[in-house]
Design a binder for these strands. Structure first.
Lengths: 347, 347
DNA sequence: ATTAGCACTCAAATTAAATGAGTGCTAATA
DNA sequence: TATTAGCACTCATTTAATTTGAGTGCTAAT
């Protein structure tokens, strides 16, 4: 059987209507809703065909039709025309801030606010090199290490030292650390480098051990795939996502950054790199997501590093709006990074 | 009418049973459940009395009894004996960490894990004085201010400067800032002090403006009543708390740190300072909390500063367990602060 | 003062009936 | 040949009626 223009039009009308109302769509509705000027009987015949082809399904004998995953997929790939950018929507959504962390938090928040779904944003994964490092004596037995890595990610680490150090000692350490670490990435910091530093540290080698491990910790921290989420409770607004138990599990998954990071990695690994990806129902990773869809977008930094923005919502999601919002946002992010405006990462 | 021993025993049995099962408790159950050896008829008479006195109520004519808020109140105040501390429970719940922030996050988490309710922890509210302050040049147009305040709360602030500064300039600023700010609390930093600093900064006065406002921001930040929460989704496990809509609103309230901070302040203002406070149903602040109870505890720092730990759960809460867990935890916290072990705040 | 006994109440569970949106099929129509 | 009016049929949902049973209050006997 062939999916001719008319069938497509009808399918589109069914899905659009279902996305709006959440109710199974009947033939009479479509008959009136479209400009096809066909009777409900004709629509019924077409619907029977569409069902046979697997695009729609009846939840029960005497109900209207709802889209199958395959139907959604076809809608997203071929039927949905993207929202025209009204001029005012183009207006920038993000405030400029100077730290990656704050920027991404903001992205998650703005997106959740605009879409009413749950959102997640990962920091770009790139070789973060040390831009600045400084050790200071905070009190009698604590050193504070401040490390700034590319993207202005700032990490602090208090290091307990049980030997008294004077300011001159600290100064020496600072010179040593900067000589070796400035411009280094996590991968550059290996046993070899540690040995070399120890060799130059003379009598302080044992103390340096502590300090060094503290700093490596902090750099490691900064390199971790951070995830920012927002609007988790939005999930509760869509009761169609199974029962409370399931929803509650989903929420927990969403709040567990570790699990979430796995999920995102899975989606990213599936992505074909063309920007925006839509995962519908079964296509989405994770057990509790059968009734959800995930839409992800990738933003790029000039150096080629990529981060992901994701939206989690019900299958019956306003794909149009989500996709267009995501597009605008990634464009804006790309620009922010390009200009070095906002987040400053000129090393 | 008098609340004699027997009535107390019966009331206690009713509430204990209700806390366990969540079902209205009938006379027959109590007749068997207690060691009073009374027939159900007698219990019924006593129950009628207890109802008249306002401690219990029938959800409908032919149902068993459930506690009223007043019943819960009496139970918590007079009937509930506290859980005996099994030796193993005494074992410490907290790992030692060196920063207030991490410690309190941990408290929230451990508590949520142990009780299965939603938890919140506020940082102690005290005059936080500046322990350490340092300005460094991170790149061509960014200065990094690092401020450590008492309790080892560390704040970073990137400051955009549009004038090129050399290291010597930065050094000067550092000396200036330290002279004025070390040991100062937020209240100490007033217009007068700013004027004095400006007077000493000479040609740099205009730049200092930016730097100073950045630093004041950061100190302000550090002084804000931070709240750490955990286990918010636990709320979903207790369907007795109204419908989904209400629950969802409650969750949102819980995730909104600002609102939450108001709530906590309200409870604290009501507290009589004897440590653990229980707010049952209507006694709790906030509109969506009619079906909830809040239990708060106060921990103290040696300087007299106080912070609050709170638990939010259904009225039908395991008060015994909650109170004992909270007690242990505050004791442990008090000790950590006393010893200066873990969080280091010897200024 | 306590308790056995019994009639009574009412939420909740079960069953039955009514409703109505929507379908599939058939026969008439353009 | 494609479309449509018409009609019998299906079945989730709604509404009503019935049954069940836990639990009560009262009374009379112990």
């Amino acid at each position: 059987m062939e999916l001719d223009e008319r069938k497509k039009k009808i399918l589109k009308a069914i899905i659009a209507n279902y996305l709006e109302t959440g109710e199974p769509v009947g033939s009479r509705t479509i008959s009136k809703y479209t400009d096809l000027n066909l009777s409900s009987a004709t629509i019924r015949n077409e619907m029977a065909d569409l069902e046979e082809m697997g695009y729609i399904i009846q939840p029960h004998t005497s109900a209207g039709r709802i889209p199958t995953d395959m139907g959604y997929r076809f809608y997203v790939d071929s039927l949905m025309e993207e929202k025209v950018d009204v001029e005012e929507e183009k207006s920038s959504l993000l405030e400029r801030v100077d730290r990656m962390e704050l920027l991404l938090k903001q992205v998650a928040k703005v997106l959740a606010y605009n879409t009413n779904y749950a959102t997640m944003v990962t920091a770009p994964k790139y070789k973060k090199t040390v831009k600045f490092i400084q050790l200071s004596k905070v009190d009698i037995d604590n050193l504070l290490a401040v490390i700034v890595v590319e993207g202005n990610i700032i990490k602090n680490k208090l290091i307990d030292v049980n030997v008294e150090l004077d300011n001159e000692d600290v100064l020496k350490f600072n010179i040593l650390l900067n000589t070796f670490l400035q411009g280094a990435s996590l991968e550059d910091i290996n046993l070899e480098m540690i040995q070399a530093m120890k060799a130059q540290s003379g009598e302080y080698a044992p103390i340096l051990e502590d300090i060094f491990s503290g700093i490596v910790d902090a750099i490691h921290d900064a390199n971790e795939l951070e995830i920012y989420t927002s609007g988790a409770t939005n999930i509760l607004k869509y009761p169609e996502i199974g029962d409370i138990r399931k929803t509650s599990e989903l929420l927990e998954t969403f709040e567990d950054k570790n699990e979430l990071s796995h999920l995102i990695e899975e989606t990213v690994s599936k992505a074909d790199g063309t920007g925006i990806q839509v995962y519908i129902g079964e296509e989405a990773p994770g057990q509790n997501m059968k009734d959800c869809s995930i839409v992800t977008a990738t933003y790029k930094m000039p150096e080629g590093a990529e981060g992901t923005i994701g939206i989690l919502g019900p299958k019956r999601m306003d794909y149009k709006k989500v996709v267009s919002t995501l597009k605008n946002l990634t464009i804006e992010l790309d620009e922010i990074f390009k200009k070095g405006e906002g987040v400053n990462d000129d090393g």
